[in-house]
Each structure stands twice: as C-alpha cells, then as structure tokens.
Design a protein around this nucleic acid. Structure first.
Lengths: 198, 198
DNA sequence: ACCTGAACACCGTTCAAGT
DNA sequence: ACCTGAACACCGTTCAAGT
C-alpha cells in the first residue's frame, strides 16, 4: 500500500472509532469522511461496506474475547468461566451501540465481512458451554447458537436507552436460566416444563 | 372529517398494513403513499409520524392483548396466565417486524404516539406478574419493566432472520427463569446467586 | 495507484399553491 | 378543509476524470 493511502486508512479508522463511540455503528459514512477531511468515495474504496469498516475496527476486540474464553476455560470453574465470559461479551458490545443487529445478520450471511468473526465468537462460547454442560452446571438443551442469540438479545437490551438500566439485572436472570439449578440437578439438567398456551 | 379525507385515511391504513406485513415497520412512507395513489404530504397530514400511523394500525391489537390479560387473570392459574400471556405478546409482535425497537423507545418517551399503549401493556403484564409472585410461582426480584424488557428482547430475537428459529425455544428458557423453580421455593422465590466476574 | 467531485436514486420534512 | 408538487437537506452507490 502506498504511504498516502496507508495514512488515509489509519486516519479514517481513528475518526470512525470516535464517531461510532459518539453515535453508534449507524453513524453516517459521509459524516466520517467529512470529519476525516477525505472524499466519501475514498472511504468506500478502503472499506467497501459498513461491515468492512467495523471488522477493521473490531477485529482486535474479537481476538481478545476469543483469547479470554481460552483463559477462562483453564483457570476458572466451568460455571464461573461461562458466566464471566458471557458478561464480558455483553459488556463489550455496549462500546459499539447497534453492533448487535449487524452481528445477528452476519452470523448466517457468509458474504458479510463480519461473518468469520461472529462464527469464531460463537464457537468460543460453545466450548465454554459444553464444558459447563459436561460438568453438570449448565442446562443441556441449549447449544452455541442459542447462547449467541441470548448474548445478542441481552446486548440489544443494553442498546435501548429505556431498557439499559435493567440490562445488568436481566443478565443475571438469564444467566440463572442457563445454569442448572443445583436443587434440581437430579432432573437431568433441565428445568421443569413451561406451561403451554391455554 | 370530510368524506374524501376519511376515504383517504382508510385506504392509507389498508395499504400501510399490507406494506408493513411485507417489509416491516421501517417500510418507506413514500412507498406507502405511492401504493395508495396519494401524495406523500397527504399521508403525513393524516399521520404526522411513523408512530402515529402505527398506533392507528395497532391500537386494536393492543386492546386485545390487554383484554386477554384480564381474562387470563381470572380463568387460568397464576403461572399459566403469566406465561401464556407473555407468549401471546411475543407472538403478536412477529406480525410487525421491527416494532419492538419502536416500542422500547416509546415506553419512556411521553411524546411518542405509542407511549400510552406501551404503558398500558406494561401495566397488564405487571398485574399478571404480581399475581404469580403472590402465589409464589414467579421470582420476586423482577417487576413490570423487567418483564416488558424481556418480552421486547424475545420479540427482537424473533425479528432477526438468523435467530428466529431459536426464538420459541429461548422463550421457554427465559420463561423458566421467570417462574420460580418449585424445587427451590424454600429459598424465598429467588434463584441461587449468579457468579460474579472473575 | 490513489483520490475526488458530481450525478444518481433514495429518504422524511416542509410549505406555498391549488381545489 | 383537504390535497399536492416541488424544494430541501440528508443518505449510500457509482464512475468518469484528475494527480
């Protein structure tokens, strides 16, 4: 890459990071280009889609979360490792308001620039979940995709200004559902059935 | 209202309902006006905001859900009434893809045309929750706002194409968290504590 | 190679002008 | 009263023209 192009790219990333922190991931790309004193077409040439720009900004975070999953796996109890990692995932998304919707779309869209990162994240969660299930401390009727969906839903709650105040508490509520209740462990790791529609 | 205005209004509502069913609540208002063979400004004069248009379309549904809450309260067990009503709420939102975000925004925005309906819905859920809590079948550390947030999160899951397949199952998971586990009823209606961060 | 202004097809908002 | 076209300020996409 030519030196001037590299400089433009780095500057665009710095400006984009600031803009997203302020306004969320839906911030106008035109606005980012303006703030970077660069033509909009230049931004689009470096990052052809919004997702491509986000990948460049977030890949470090994704790596950190994946690494952390591995560390928790060896240094914490199966239960604490799973819950702590889930908490870290949800907490991380709050730095990028609106990213949850894009991640939910990317997990099944192999064309999305975010796809690979989302799949890796799901796999990391699935490993921690399987370990907890094997230890008998997590319900066995959910898998990595369910876990990904629950993280996304809790992250989405944190994104909504009117609901964000309850996000932490509701994380605990959902976490309690994922973890097998020790008092009912003899039922095979699942909850009592939920009543069906009347 | 003049006869021609009434006719325009009714026609706009019919077209808007069809358009939203197809494309979700974010459908272009210009597109609705075009399909109704009416000027965009005419649509905006009848319904000054997207929320106002939605209220006109949804107020019947809101009323039905509120009525149903009252019926469940007298004809079902506290546990079945709460869960069945929650299920109905989530199922209803799937007919209006994207409405969850607007409802989350409206619940705390007294200026929103959707505000009153959302508050009424929350109150109906709060009554069913209080009844279940009094009967000892629902955890006592959540309130109507938590319930509203959980419904919204589950409805949001159903809105995401990649996660929708898990929405029903995850509803059961979350419902199991709301309902007190009979095996641990002696703990006072709350779950065992969730491990905190490592 | 890399950058950019300009044209394009969209969006919701507003309002003066019509009937 | 009610309706509407047109102007406005935005958006992301695309590309011919510049350096």
């Amino acid at each position: 890459m030519r030196a001037d192009a590299r400089k433009n790219r780095d500057h665009l990333l710095a400006v984009a990071g600031a803009a997203i922190t302020e306004q969320g991931v839906d911030v106008s790309l035109r606005d980012i280009a303006r703030r970077a004193d660069v033509g909009l077409a230049t931004l689009l040439r470096h990052f052809p889609t919004r997702e491509a720009l986000l990948v460049a900004l977030l890949h470090t975070s994704f790596d950190e979360l994946t690494t952390k999953a591995g560390e928790f796996e060896t240094s914490n109890s199966p239960e604490a490792a799973l819950v702590s990692w889930l908490r870290d995932c949800v907490a991380w998304t709050t730095e990028y308001r609106g990213v949850t919707v894009l991640m939910a779309a990317a997990i099944e869209d192999t064309e999305s620039a975010l796809h690979a990162s989302c799949v890796i994240l799901r796999a990391a969660g699935a490993r921690l979940l399987a370990r907890a299930q094997a230890a008998g401390v997590a319900r066995t009727d959910i898998d990595g995709t369910d876990l990904f969906a629950l993280i996304a839903a809790l992250a989405w709650l944190g994104d909504q200004p009117s609901l964000a105040a309850r996000a932490d508490h509701l994380f605990d509520v959902v976490a309690s559902a994922i973890l097998t209740n020790p008092a009912s462990a003899d039922t095979g790791g699942t909850r009592p059935p939920v009543p069906t529609r009347s």
